[in-house]
């Protein structure tokens, strides 16, 4: 699942992931993500930290503590937002990638996380 409020970037990453053979469900805000997660737990979550309604950190917390899921979570954050990244890792994020995103790098990280599980 890809949770990103920037539609253009989301579309681009979606295209790249799909091209790499992954099935992607997209959400543009925290609310959508939550609804989606309530229905179905994906194999991997790629989430931006800054999102409307429901931030990426809250999402991690929700997944780890409310849903008690160990689904790998990759966080996308702006460069220099060290505190958020550390919080994300504390809450249980598996990996981190900073903006501007390199789609190729993201694919590598996704592959690695999925391979772990």
């Amino acid at each position: 699942m890809l949770a990103e409020d920037d539609e253009l970037l989301a579309s681009l990453l979606n295209y790249r992931l799909e091209k790499s053979g992954y099935q992607v469900s997209m959400s543009y805000n925290g609310k959508e993500v939550k609804d989606h997660l309530d229905k179905e737990m994906p194999d991997l979550i790629i989430s931006d930290i800054m999102m409307p309604y429901f931030s990426g950190l809250e999402l991690i917390d929700y997944v780890r503590n409310e849903l008690n899921s160990k689904t790998p979570i990759i966080i996308i954050s702006s460069a220099g937002n060290e505190e958020n990244v550390l919080n994300a890792f504390d809450l249980g994020a598996n990996d981190f990638i900073s903006k501007p995103v390199s789609p190729a790098e993201l694919i590598v990280r996704v592959e690695r996380e999925l391979a772990k599980n």
């Binding site: 920037d6 253009l8 970037l9 681009l12 903006k99 501007p100 995103v101 390199s102 789609p103 190729a104 790098e105």
Partner: peptide, 15 residues
């Protein structure tokens, strides 16, 4: 505008 926006968000070969 799309290209300019994406230019900020992506890096590497894509950029």
């Amino acid at each position: 505008s799309i290209l300019l926006d994406l230019r900020k968000d992506v890096t590497g070969e894509s950029q």
